[in-house]
């Protein structure tokens, strides 16, 4: 019960004091919106349905990674994070509470492009039963990547720099804009080491039936990434935060 109460209150605090702050709300809307408009202006003849999977994935990736890394690094720099480390709750509970806020934020970000797209195209043929879990899994894995950064970074600007260091290559390697088969041969194996690749593939399948892998395989890979990243993050936390 202690864990549950603590979990819920950490999550509530993060949502209220970080994620629901006006700059984050506006950023969460403006960022996906500007990407959507940019893509539409750049290729006016292009299908919105073809653009949406990439935009959804990107919105989740950017929303989750930066927010979690920044909030944790911020709390660590003003030492309020010590309160969580010293609370009589397991590290698992604390980490789950911290990542839950970012996951929810990422999921909400994902549906900003969907909301705007719904004014232009019919989305009733989209297989939402696949989209929803795929968005969730992208949010989970991206958040855990953000956690890895948070453990490494000491300052907020470091967290932002590290985030960009891996986010931008991921955009080009995960099949968001360039199909993996069109990448140079030596880069193709790297694409399959990125969780975003699998999430995007499922969403592409759900929107336009253009998936390369079977959804089952993609969800399996995403689950494996999530578990692996969670374990690595916990080990890193033990190593770097409990000195």
């Amino acid at each position: 019960m202690t864990s549950l109460i603590a979990y819920w209150n950490i999550l509530k605090k993060d949502v209220k004091y970080y994620y629901l702050k006006p700059p984050n709300i506006s950023w969460g809307i403006i960022f996906p919106l500007s990407w959507t408009l940019m893509q539409l202006i750049r290729s006016p003849g292009g299908s919105i349905l073809e653009l949406l999977p990439g935009l959804i994935s990107m919105s989740v990736l950017f929303g989750t990674t930066s927010m979690l890394a920044v909030t944790i690094t911020f709390e660590r720099s003003d030492r309020s994070f010590e309160r969580l480390l010293l609370a009589p709750i397991s590290l698992h509970t604390m980490v789950l509470a911290k990542i839950s806020g970012a996951i929810v934020f990422g999921i909400l970000n994902a549906f900003v492009p969907v909301f705007f797209a719904s004014f232009f195209v019919h989305l009733h043929e989209v297989d939402w039963k696949l989209v929803l879990p795929a968005v969730l899994m992208i949010a989970v894995t991206s958040t855990l990547l953000g956690l890895l950064i948070a453990v490494t970074a000491k300052q907020v600007f470091e967290a932002q720099t590290f985030s960009n260091l891996f986010r931008f290559p991921m955009l080009f390697l995960s099949g968001l804009f360039i199909p993996i088969k069109d990448l140079p041969r030596f880069l193709q194996p790297i694409a399959y080491c990125i969780p975003l690749t699998y999430g995007t593939d499922v969403i592409k399948g759900a929107f336009i039936g253009a998936n390369v892998l079977s959804p089952m395989l993609s969800f399996g890979a995403l689950s494996a990434f999530a578990i692996g990243l969670f374990i690595i993050s916990l080990k890193n936390i033990h190593k770097k935060w409990i000195l």
Binding site: S3, I5, A6, W8, R83, P88, I89
Partner: peptide, 9 residues
Amino acid sequence: FCAALYGMR
């Protein structure tokens, strides 16, 4: 919030 970390209702 601090009380919640100790499981207080």
